[in-house]
Amino acid sequence: MNKINQKPKLAVWKFASCDGCQLSLLDCEDELLALADEIEIANFPEASRAFIPGPYDLSLVEGSITTPEDKERIQDVRRQSKYLVTIGACATAGGIQALRNLKDVKEFIDIVYAHPDYINTLATSSAIADHVLVDFELRGCPINKRQLLEVITAFLHGRKPNISRYSVCIECKRRGMACLTVTQGAPCLGPVTQAGCGAICPAYNRGCYGCFGPTETPNTESLANWLLDKGMITDDLVRLFRTYNAQSSAFKKESDRHE
């Protein structure tokens, strides 16, 4: 067997999503050639039409489960994959589209589509881990390309990925920024959101939107109490927790608590 055939096979799968996370893989421009040297990209429709059948050593799954077909398809992906890593908020928490879980989807369909009977969708958008065993969940909306490379590298070398589960604040302070919450009273989800983005939003004078989902031990209740005490209205607080990771258990619990 020559070296080419020994290379681990990578597959990228898309479910309900915006493609932004897959794009992070294409965005690894400088590293893409090195990656192609180490790994055989066997299925990655966004990059190439070439398709090599499974089984696959590593599957990257983007998107959430929103249709009966996808519910079946993810089982098939799992069966074909030695390791399955979910990428992004949709795949790990249902994504922004999981806001549908709070409403009546049938009602939406009736309003939006001329022929509602053509639409076959589930009442909820759910995370991949709700359906199959997931080996690692990479957070973010979108994911951070450095973190993606770290996960792939760790997989290639058979080690644990160095992905921290502490707060965005730690990255924010390491960058030497002055906290927006303290200097302006700005609502920022940094203290309860997992690091990984490098505190991009605080660096551009915006509070953290929680794209990377809850930290290892998120104390959302204390943060919410503080924000309410400082004058935030309940509707805004609910909205703050209901974005890309609205259905992650800690953020969901907090927003539900104030409704």
């Binding site: 502490y166 604040c169 730690i170 203290p191």
Partner: peptide
Amino acid sequence: EKRCLACGNCTMACPTCFCSNVE
């Protein structure tokens, strides 16, 4: 336990905190 966010801001801002992680 109820109030602290475990965000780590205090330790980052503290001029004497010296802990580091090697990766």
